[in-house]
């Protein structure tokens, strides 16, 4: 359990850095969705199942769709 926690947190930090460094905004959104999914598993480990449920629905689902909707109206690549 301890090592699972460690792996998840390291993956979370790697995702957070990768979101900031990616130039392609669509890939950044996909990485951000995986960040939200790992965060939801971490909330479950921290015994907050209702927050985990909301994070999986809002963070991984709706936010991704909203961001893709915004990108389809603007540019794809970061300058």
């Amino acid at each position: 359990m301890r090592y699972l926690n460690l792996i998840l947190i390291l993956f979370l930090i790697a995702c957070a850095i990768a979101v900031e460094r990616t130039k392609d905004l669509v890939s950044a959104i996909v990485i951000f969705a995986s960040y939200s999914l790992v965060m939801a598993i971490l909330w479950l480990i921290l015994r907050a199942p209702d927050i985990a449920m909301t994070e999986a629905a809002i963070g991984a689902g709706v936010t991704t769709v909203l961001f893709i909707g915004v990108i389809s109206r603007t540019r794809r690549m970061e300058k």
Partner: peptide, 21 residues
């Protein structure tokens, strides 16, 4: 149980977003 108004409402809203997509 875990969840409630916000989580359930978000799930129903996500289903309609899927319908729109």
């Amino acid at each position: 149980s875990p969840g409630g108004g916000f989580a359930g409402g978000a799930i129903i809203g996500a289903s309609f977003i899927l319908l729109t997509l």
